[in-house]
Amino acid sequence: MTDRSSKWRLLWAVLAMSLVVVACGGTDSADTDADETSSSDDVANDASVETSDVEGQIFISGSSTVEPVSVRVAELFEDVAPDVFVDVEGPGTGDGFKKFCAGETDISNASREIKASEAEECAAAGIEFTEILVGIDGIGVMTSDRNSAIDCVTFGDLYGLVGPESDDVESWADANAITGTDLPDAPLDIFGPGEESGTYDSFVEIVIEDLAEERGQDAATRSTYSPSADDNVILSGIQSSDTSIGWVGFAFADNATGVKLLDVDGGEGCVSATAETIASNDYPISRNLYIYVNETNAADSPALRAFIDFYVTTGLDEAVSEVGYVELTDAAKAEVIAAWQG
């Protein structure tokens, strides 16, 4: 029981804080420390009554990459507003927008920005939406930690090693013939996620697509490597071969042992993958994660508004990193909150 009530107290506090942030809106809150602490109790009491009383149903569909974030936020929100029922599914960003623009969902998770064609579809159906940036997904490119020959790869290297023209590339040096890179001669073992995964999509989109288009190829990886849905399997594959290469989501890569995270050069020099470089968009293989909110529904439903309020505060602070993505910088968070409030 004590455990439970302390959890509750914590959540009230979190809620109170978040509402303070919301109340302060765009104004800089750092200079009013004393006022803030004194007023937070009142705000918390008022707000808690309000939020815990809202009722309603929220349905979220869309990207399977963002799905865990939204699920986690919904779980946290459930403790704050037990009468709001949030269901989440994750068929994919494109599927989600189809539903969203048909008015079937309140929120659409997306691992990319909405396409012009999709936005037109929404407009035609009279659906207005707000885009909210919630986090960043970085992709770590790795080799075995016994491999000292290489520390940094360019997009060109990666294209030559795993791109659509590399079905017959069996040695690192074979890739040189494709994009004129200068890689050493060593056997090449590739491990990566399968096509169903958001990580695969992002990798192709960011690393492969531009070069593939230039060279008149499909935007896809080579088909001659064995993909896995299980990140652990990918990691143990990379560990198992001295001259392996592979890629998984950054959070997973960062905690792994026996592998070496490679720096990546996206045209502006080698950048090592850290939470900071990803949050600041310096590291080239990263993508933004969004949620899109149906504005009409938000205007009609206090529950949906409360949920988004919660999402842009506690969600951004806790859920994003818990699920394994990179949190926004404080400045970016403030911007997101301001945009939602505005």
Binding site: S70, V71, A74, E78, F85, D87, V88, E89
Partner: peptide, 9 residues
Amino acid sequence: AITGRLAPR
């Protein structure tokens, strides 16, 4: 059938 999240009713 839902595999993601189904809120308690």
